[in-house]
Design a protein around this nucleic acid. Structure first.
Length: 845
RNA sequence: GCUCUCGUAGCCCAAUCGGUAGAGGCAACCGACUUAAAAUCGGUCCAGUCCGGGUUCGAGCCCCGGCGAGAGCACCA
């Protein structure tokens, strides 16, 4: 073959450099401590069987670019990857295939790792961790003991979200509309003994800590809402003809004079005691019916939704005026919030108003300003019909009534949180065993730290037992143990998947230590995480739980920073077009075609709907990074992931788009390499060249890229780089020094190609070790700028001036324009505006 | 129902403190090269910024009210 060409071949150079980085240990975490540190972290993935699609690497590529640039900028960088590898899907797959979950997990990790490695991500793979590895979960158990010994773990008989299909309970956060968010299996309420964490003890701290971190405001707000701090008062109501006292929580104690009834949640402890014989049947029926209702039935209830309830026949006594008011039961009151009971003020609460209307209960106005016969008035105004509160506005009235309640011993001011204690046990196999045993007298004992880990017993069936105990109960030999000679039973629950991800960022600082969870010196050096990148779906759960553990560890002086994640960044999702027919069946892009602007199936020409949706296997719209790498190369894929748009926005995947970034790399290659001879291109010269456009493009590119490392707005930087390559393609000569600076700035984005060209340009050491290129502001300056000249905001012409011209010069030049002179003749100049480098505006009439 | 984010060329996206809309890419089209095509190179086309008000000398950007898309929350007393 004589027409052999030497064009850009990512298929050859990418494996070459990946191998080189691995053998030379290029991305090994530095051990010297003389440089500033930078800890950049990805939210580690759950290694699912489906493998990666092109949406996953978006965040990883962004952090990789930051990591590579920070190294070049003189930082010691900690850049690591691991696996959140405990979890239900592996267990289910294990059942399906008749294999052990460990086997499934190992296989999936290998797939994920291979897919990530071909992208050339600069992880220090020697620090890889997996939460399901005994060397790792040993320390998860160790941290559990720290929390346990701090009195933060407790067992409680609690109503839980029981999922019959999975045979386990779920956390509140995992349930939505009465179904498990992940699988859609229905969830029902059940009373069970469970391990809980007193995360509520940290509610105030978790709230306050948000003020000190650089997180998107939206995420902070979600966490604040989730924690849900509210100030109010506890008020005690006596009951006529009973010794019982009903305690209620309210944020509006000022409306106490407007109270016309009291409501208990159906599950309230006093329901039995406070039901009259006449109402007993009705109450029992109501309690039964609401108990049966799963949350799925109750789902989307707005505040003014139709209300149900039943009277108990008992009367409560309003502590502030001695009035007798009826006690009702209704499911709009939630048993688990506050005291599971409220006093109702229909005039000033939407829910109470709807209830009072339904059951024809009195509505008594105590804050003037609305028409309470029509709707609840929740705005401010002077209090009326409220004795000593009359005339006061809400805040003052709240303070005064709270003071009164306190002095009369009928109540007190309190702060309450919507945050609930964290339900921490699961009835699954593939999770961390608790390091706990129970003796026959019911006492719980901890396993000594030096006996950790408590290993998962080997089982061949992973379902709960017939009588509903967790899968670990099947390991009868394992369960039976002893404590100081006395027989004892091991805890058979396992920890939820959140456990491992609550502290993996700490393990990464010294992942191979087998004598401690982390080395305090390493922790002190690397923490906090400087940049944490992941999806917004973890806004509440993972980030709140991890902060909670971290704060506990901080209190025990086990970590050096009060917050784990200094800066958080959420990358947007990658969407792709999906095709569905009338029956909502999905089709692969290969199965469809466009006819006259309409999409139909190739076979049978069924009409189709197109939609932009989150990439997902079930929607037949995933693009596989392996295919993209094979066709365009990892560097083109990396560039396109970031070129699609701002990192935080959702983006639409188009394979045509990748061809654009690939063409950019092809052009760059041809600027440097003569693709007919495989030698350096003749346009690369060692001497200086007078080409202002090219030089400016270079410096602008470096500048914008330097900024992008902090703002993560790589899409703009890539556009600048494209301009440079376009200029360089046009140029007759390109100084080698310029192209080298350019390669250094581009290397974090397209590392394989830049390494290769760097080597071809005669350098021995890798480009990954070369310091970050600088740019010169002076080069960016242009000699003249076009100033827009306006009269009364309307464009009349342009003048060309030096960018730093004075106002007088600019105005003089503007007025010298014929059109301008004509426009201002005979008029009074009211105002003259000069924005250097931009415009001159003369306001005249 | 509530909250947040986003609406700029056919499409994806730029546009500093509010300074008079275009950097880049995709697609399309034209030309060069080619027997031809692909690839490549050069070039061209294209919007007045979702709609309606307001503030301002000046609004894509700020304010108010709609419309549309996406995400989150949902009886928390």
């Amino acid at each position: 073959m004589t027409d052999e060409r030497y064009d850009y071949q990512p298929g050859t150079i990418e494996p070459k450099w990946q191998e080189r980085w691995a053998t030379e240990g290029t991305f090994k975490t530095p051990t010297d401590r003389t440089k500033p540190k930078y800890y950049v972290l990805d939210m580690f993935p759950y290694p699912s069987g489906a493998g990666l699609h092109v949406g996953h690497p978006k965040g990883y590529v962004a952090t990789d670019v930051v990591a590579r640039a920070k190294r070049a900028q003189g930082c010691n960088v900690l850049r690591v990857m691991g696996w959140d590898s405990f979890g239900l899907p592996a267990e289910r797959q294990a059942v399906k295939e008749g294999k052990h979950p460990r086997e499934i997990t190992t296989r999936n990790i290998a797939t994920f790792k291979g897919q990530l490695q071909q992208l050339g991500l600069s992880y220090d793979w020697e620090r890889e961790v997996a939460t399901s590895d005994p060397d790792y979960y040993r320390w998860t158990q160790w941290i559990f003991l720290k929390l346990y010994k701090a009195g933060l773990a407790f067992q409680a008989e609690v109503p839980v979200n029981w999922c019959p299909a999975l045979g386990t309970v779920l956390a509140n956060e995992e349930v939505h509309d009465g179904v498990y968010k992940e699988t859609g299996d229905p969830v029902e309420a059940r009373l069970m003994k469970q391990w809980m964490f007193r995360i509520t003890d940290y509610a105030e701290r978790l709230l306050a800590g948000l003020d000190d971190v650089d997180w998107p405001e939206g995420i902070k707000r979600l966490q604040r809402d989730w924690i849900g701090r509210s100030e109010g008062a506890d008020i005690r109501f006596a009951v006529a003809g009973s010794e019982a006292t009903i305690e209620v929580f309210t944020t509006r104690p000022d409306t106490l004079f407007g109270c016309t009834y009291v409501v208990l949640a159906p599950e309230h402890a006093l329901v039995e005691a406070l039901t009259s014989d006449a109402q007993r049947a009705a109450v029992a029926a109501y309690v039964e019916s609401t108990g049966k209702r799963t949350e799925r039935d109750r789902k989307a209830q707005a505040a003014d939704a139709p209300k149900t309830g039943v009277s108990t026949g008992f009367m409560a006594i309003n502590p502030v005026n001695g009035e007798q008011i009826p006690i009702w039961i209704a499911d709009y009151v939630i048993g688990s919030y506050g005291h599971g009971a409220v006093f109702a003020c229909p005039a000033h609460d939407v829910r109470d108003h709807a209830f009072a209307k339904t059951f024809d209960l009195p509505i008594k106005e105590v804050v003037a300003g609305g028409d309470v016969t029509q709707e609840a008035y929740t705005g401010d105004g002077p209090h009326v019909s409220s004795s000593f509160l009359d005339g006061l506005e809400i805040d003052a009235a709240k303070a005064k009534i709270t003071e009164w309640l306190t002095s009369e011993a009928k109540g007190s001011g309190v702060v309450r949180f919507a945050l609930r204690d964290w339900l921490f046990s699961r009835q699954r196999y593939w999770g961390e065993p608790f390091p706990l045993v129970e003796t026959e007298d019911g006492t719980t004992h901890t396993i000594p730290e030096d006996q950790l880990p408590v290993l998962l017993p080997e089982l061949d069936a992973y379902k709960p037992t017939e009588d509903g105990r967790p899968p670990l109960a099947r390991a009868t030999d394992w369960v039976q143990t002893e404590v100081s000679g006395k027989p004892a039973r091991r805890e058979t629950n396992t920890m939820p998947q959140w456990a491992g991800s609550c502290w993996y960022y700490l393990r990464f600082t010294s992942p191979t230590r087998d004598d401690m969870a982390w080395d305090p010196e390493e922790e002190a050096y690397w923490m906090p995480v400087d940049l944490y990148v992941g999806g917004a779906e973890h806004a509440v759960l993972h980030l709140l739980y991890a902060r909670f553990w971290h704060q506990v560890l901080y209190d025990q002086k086990l970590v050096s920073t009060p917050e784990p994640f200094k800066r958080l960044f959420n990358q947007g999702m990658v969407h792709a077009t999906s095709y569905t027919d009338e029956r909502e069946r999905y089709y692969y892009p290969e199965q469809v075609e466009e006819v006259d602007g309409k999409w139909v199936t190739k076979e049978g020409a069924l009409p189709l709907k197109t939609k932009l949706e989150k990439m997902s296997k079930s929607k037949c719209n995933v693009a596989n990074p392996d295919d993209v790498c094979a066709k365009f190369g990892a560097d083109a894929l990396r560039l396109y992931e970031l070129f699609m748009g701002p990192l935080e926005d959702g983006a639409t995947w188009t394979t045509d788009g990748v061809s654009g970034t690939r063409r950019f790399l092809d052009r760059l290659w041809r600027v440097v390499i003569n693709d007919e001879t495989n030698a350096l291109s003749a346009k690369i010269v060692s001497e200086e060249v007078d080409n202002k456009d090219l030089e400016r493009a270079l410096h602008l590119g470096i500048k914008v890229m330097s900024e992008a490392v902090d703002t993560l707005r790589f899409n703009v930087a890539i556009a600048r780089f494209m301009e440079f390559v376009n200029e360089a393609t046009k140029a007759k000569q390109v100084p080698q020094a310029w192209i080298e600076s350019f390669l250094c700035a581009l290397a974090p984005l397209a590392p394989h190609l830049c390494e290769e060209l760097w080597e071809r340009l005669g350098h021995e050491g890798g480009i990954s070790l070369v310091p970050w290129p600088s740019y010169d502001e002076a080069v960016l300056k242009v000699e003249t700028v076009k100033l827009v000249v306006q009269i009364n905001g309307k464009k009349k012409g342009e003048v060309e001036l030096a960018p730093d011209a004075s106002q007088d010069e600019a105005l003089a030049a503007a007025k010298a324009l014929e059109k301008v002179a004509a426009a201002i003749t005979g008029k009074t100049i009211r105002r003259e505006i000069y924005v250097p480098g931009r415009l001159v505006n003369i306001v005249a009439n």
